[in-house]
Design a protein around this nucleic acid. Sequence first.
DNA 1: GATGAATGAGTATTCATTCAT
DNA 2: CATGAATGAATACTCATTCAT
Lengths: 193, 193, 193, 193
Amino acid sequence: MNSALELFARKGYHNTKISDVVKAAGVSQGTFYWYFEGKEQLAVRLIENGKEKLTQVIEQGYRKHAGSVDDMVSSSARLLTDLFEFADHNRNLMAILLIKGQGADPLIREAVSGTWIAFEEAFKNNVNRAIELDMLPHFTDVSLRVNILVSLITGVLTKWLFGPMHDVDYKSAYRPSEIAEETARFEFRGLLG
Amino acid sequence: MNSALELFARKGYHNTKISDVVKAAGVSQGTFYWYFEGKEQLAVRLIENGKEKLTQVIEQGYRKHAGSVDDMVSSSARLLTDLFEFADHNRNLMAILLIKGQGADPLIREAVSGTWIAFEEAFKNNVNRAIELDMLPHFTDVSLRVNILVSLITGVLTKWLFGPMHDVDYKSAYRPSEIAEETARFEFRGLLG
Amino acid sequence: MNSALELFARKGYHNTKISDVVKAAGVSQGTFYWYFEGKEQLAVRLIENGKEKLTQVIEQGYRKHAGSVDDMVSSSARLLTDLFEFADHNRNLMAILLIKGQGADPLIREAVSGTWIAFEEAFKNNVNRAIELDMLPHFTDVSLRVNILVSLITGVLTKWLFGPMHDVDYKSAYRPSEIAEETARFEFRGLLG
Amino acid sequence: MNSALELFARKGYHNTKISDVVKAAGVSQGTFYWYFEGKEQLAVRLIENGKEKLTQVIEQGYRKHAGSVDDMVSSSARLLTDLFEFADHNRNLMAILLIKGQGADPLIREAVSGTWIAFEEAFKNNVNRAIELDMLPHFTDVSLRVNILVSLITGVLTKWLFGPMHDVDYKSAYRPSEIAEETARFEFRGLLG
DNA sequence: GATGAATGAGTATTCATTCAT
DNA sequence: CATGAATGAATACTCATTCAT
């Protein structure tokens, strides 16, 4: 039900009517309820599904060997490029995860939250691995650092995909790789870098 | 109508009924429509109101003189502390601006967007001023840099205030100044700093 | 909401739509929900209301003094006449209590049951009083006897009001007093009397 | 389809879904519609089927010879015992006939009514026969008398089987023969007997 | 004969908004 | 200014029935 994803992404959960969803899918109301328990479950399934795909993208970036700082930056840029390209190709999913899921009901917000928790977990693993390999300093508070890192990434994603301001139809001037590289630079070296 | 702000923050725009709002405010439905044109206008006014207060906080951080890198970091930390303290004292407003406004209707999203655009504008001014004063390198793309910087700040704000994951009742372990300093460090020096 | 009572009586609970009820009452759907919590509550209120009126009728027949057997029969005939006249004037209520309430949902069935339990209790009081006054033999099992007596009365009521077979529009050939007298005779003397 | 009978008896016609019926019977929806024209026809067939069995029980009590009053009472008690035993073994059927059929649709109510008309007819024959044999007085209005008699029996059946008040799971304290004998006594001699 | 996916008309309920008092 | 009863459009969900396989 890809059309449902688009409707949720474009109009938001509450403004998407089941009658719209079934019309877009070309089936009857009854058919919808044969496959889904209800509107809420549809949204949750959509999100769970996206979570899996998103997780796969990130897990491919798992760090294996030590290397120079530049290696590290470019390897992070590669991961972010993958991520941003995935996001670019799955704008509707990202819209729900980054924006539109927030106004919805508990179960849905929970599914969205679960996705970002998994996302953060994956990044924490990567950072910890980098610390073991002495590629990054031994932070006193890794969680906080990762928290801030993930905040950076989701913040950038939101602006880049749905920029001024959070319009699903927004088209950014930057290609995924460009924004990924700039983000990676910022990730490691900040404004001064 | 401070209670309305809380209801929107806690339950979201669509799940907040006017009947709830007036009950919490202790007035009748009719009275509400004497003061507001409707539900949407209530939300917009709430946001516009918050936007002004938020802007005032940021504008106080306008950079005037050149200084060392450390001056710059600590001055930024000061601004962020002010901002984070304001956010801490205005959680309901921030919840709408950062989270709950996203699922709402066009007019409301526009008001939220307007707030962040003003926010970004203020930061851009600060960064440009810092560049003029030779405190920051001459980026090829200032907008992009500021974009990323603002993404970082809003991302951190969201997680810190409404952390795992976006719960309005979430209480962070960090004080405003702590999270502000860590963010400022990251702002200038990234993960490696 | 007398028209609702008629609709329930004529078409049954499940076949009566709220849209019918409000149309018959000349109000809007919204108005209905301002006064009632829902369809179920409407039915329950209707029944509770009828229960009170029915109870009043029966309690007037409370036996005070001893008398001959013929006194007893005629006094019972009087009570039954009152009851049957009430029933005749409140056919819609009786239809729900005797027939149409049975197919409905738990809360409604409970309200109907409660009415008959109160009804039986009132008759038991009367019978016990008659036994104290030595007007009736000391049965070994008063409850059973009253049970059978009440079964007789409700059975007769059902047939007489809604006869062949349980049609709400049925018009009996007998007047309330006639059927009441015959029932009273049967009550005390059975087929042989 | 014995399970259907139970569902109708327990939940009522309107609250029993075809999907429940087929699940309980272990067949598919399609199969149901191969054997039955629809939900209504299922109920009607169930009732017609029961009507026949019920009629057989009563017709066995057809009076053939004259006898004393006590003979008559005990012979009636025997018939009622048979009837009440049948009812006890066919609670689901009786529930529909006595209670749950009442809230249903015209065709079903008609089938239920037809059953009781046949029931009443059988009793009228018995009473007329008893009058011919001079076992009962020549009532001026036999129909009315039989009406009241049948009212008594169905009333007693309902209370005894589904007592306080009309609960399908109700278990009475009395055995069929006990309640039958008490009813027969009442039938002939009333409260005074 | 049997299956179960597909249908769509039908309905109770919600809630922002209005307006007579 | 304030009230709260009245409105009715909007909508998620149900379930008897059908029919291609």
